[in-house]
Simulated assay, not measured.
Amino acid sequence: MAEGHTHFIVFANEKGGSGKSTSAVHIAVALAAAGRRVAALDMDTRQRTLARYLENRLATTRRLNVELPMPLFDTFDPAKGVPIEARLAELAAEAEIVVIDTPGRDDPDARAAISRADTLVTPINDSFIDLDLIGQVDAETYKVRRPSFYAELVWDARKARGKRDGATVDWVVLRNRLQHIEARNMKRVAQAMGELSKRVGFRIVPGLSERVIFRELFPKGLTLLDLAAIGEPGIAHIAARQELREMVSSLALPDWPARRIAAAG
Rank of each mutant, 00 (worst) to 15 (best):
R175W: 01
D109W: 13
V189N: 11
L222T: 09
D126W: 12
R158G: 03
S148M: 09
N65Q: 13
W256H: 14
E94H: 02
D101R: 01
I261Y: 10
G81P: 09
N65C: 00
G4S: 13
H7R: 10
R111N: 04
A258P: 05
S115L: 04
I27P: 05
P83S: 14
V121M: 10
A192H: 11
A24T: 02
Y53M: 09
L88I: 08
A183K: 13
S18W: 00
F202W: 12
E14R: 15
S21K: 03
P69Q: 06
L244Q: 12
H5G: 14
L217C: 04
R164V: 00
T49I: 02
A86Y: 03
L153N: 03
L31P: 09
A183S: 11
V82Q: 07
L50N: 01
N13A: 12
P71G: 05
V121Q: 10
I213S: 09
R62I: 08
P103S: 02
K20R: 07
M1T: 12
T141W: 09
I134M: 15
A28V: 02
G162A: 04
K159A: 11
G231E: 05
M186W: 13
V29F: 06
A51I: 00
V10C: 03
A2E: 15
R175P: 01
E152T: 06
A183C: 00
G162E: 15
L178R: 14
I235H: 10
M70E: 08
R259K: 13
A28E: 04
P257G: 07
F149H: 12
T49S: 15
L225H: 08
N125G: 14
V98S: 05
R260D: 15
R57L: 07
R46Y: 15
G162Q: 13
A95G: 05
P78T: 11
L133E: 08
Q179L: 08
V66C: 12
